[in-house]
């Protein structure tokens, strides 16, 4: 039981990160391999503000979100827009975007190592035990879970029940038709990318409260987010949440019963199963 709950608590944050990536890939059509680095940047910000100024990570969220939004918007406008314009097809864009963001991820890792060194960093925030169903859990994990769930819910409601959210979903479904009904696709793509980056960075702040990070760990989170997005189906919020649950719980099971060093291998095993049996995602329809 305690393993299930630990996995559940972890999956909340995973769902949030995957939603960030889903916005970038599903709407802006950018397969962002530097997604995990943005997460680590968020975690770094929380770490520095907490150890340097005693600022609670929960407050840092409100600072990191707009900064990351702006930063990602700049990345999209400066680096990715030219690729979108020069791409002849979606496949060509995908390839260019993968190469560029892959390079970007190394630049970001390089900057972080240069600036802060390659050491592990963590800080002790709300590391008090809390009892749920008779077992002890870290309060920080519970708070992180609550934050992540609240943000996911807010994002979900906004996407499904607001005008802007509807426009974003329209672009996700079909950029060509979205243009016909008067949606400014380039502008919205930039915003969706920026929003996705902001969500990821916020996820990084949250995750830094209970996990130890280092400058080059980003790629692991990129992998996990990608696996969740694919498992859940691109652009499918419900699928993303369930996939995050499966990954979080599955990973915790493997970490507990076999070895904590095998979490990525566990995620990979699930990835292979999905690719073999349901490549369109858990709830996706088979392409005709």
């Amino acid at each position: 039981m305690d393993i299930i709950i630990t996995g559940l608590l972890l999956s909340g944050t995973y769902a949030l990160i995957a939603m960030g990536l889903n916005l970038q890939y599903g709407v802006a059509r950018i397969m962002n391999l530097a997604n995990g680095e943005m997460l680590v940047v968020g975690g770094f910000a929380a770490f520095i503000l907490f150890t340097g100024g005693g600022v609670s990570p929960l407050l840092t969220l409100f600072l990191v979100a707009p900064v990351a939004f702006f930063l990602n918007w700049l990345i999209y406008r400066i680096m990715l827009r030219p690729l979108v314009n020069r791409a002849k097809s979606r496949g060509a864009l995908e390839q260019d975007a993968i190469l560029t963001t892959f390079g970007l991820s190394f630049v970001m890792v390089g900057l972080m190592i240069w600036g802060f060194g390659g050491d592990y960093f963590n800080y002790s925030f709300l590391s008090r035990p809390i009892v749920i169903f008779g077992d002890n859990f870290g309060l920080n994990r519970v708070v992180a879970f609550v934050c992540a769930v609240a943000l996911c819910a807010a994002l979900y409601l906004w996407l499904n029940h607001s005008r802007a959210g509807m426009a974003i979903r329209a672009v996700a479904v079909s950029p060509e038709s979205a243009r016909l009904v008067g949606i400014d696709v380039p502008k919205l793509s930039a915003r969706a990318f920026a929003l996705g980056g902001a969500v990821t960075a916020v996820g990084g702040v949250i995750i830094s409260t209970f996990l130890t990070l280092d400058a080059s760990i980003g790629v692991l989170f990129t992998m996990k987010a990608l696996i969740i997005v694919i498992m859940g189906g691109v652009g499918d919020v419900r699928g993303t949440i369930i996939a995050a649950l499966i990954l979080g719980v599955g990973e915790t099971l493997v970490a507990t019963f076999i070895d904590p060093g095998l979490t990525l291998a566990a995620a990979y095993a699930m990835f292979i199963l999905i690719l073999l049996f349901r490549p369109q995602g858990l709830f996706g329809r088979r392409p005709t």
Partner: peptide
């Protein structure tokens, strides 16, 4: 499947095998 799956899969392959070998 589409090329994206391939790229993602290869991205983490070295890390996954490294974890298995270490284990």
């Amino acid at each position: 499947l589409s090329g994206v799956y391939f790229v993602i899969f290869t991205l983490g392959l070295a890390e996954m095998i490294r974890q298995c070998v270490t284990w």
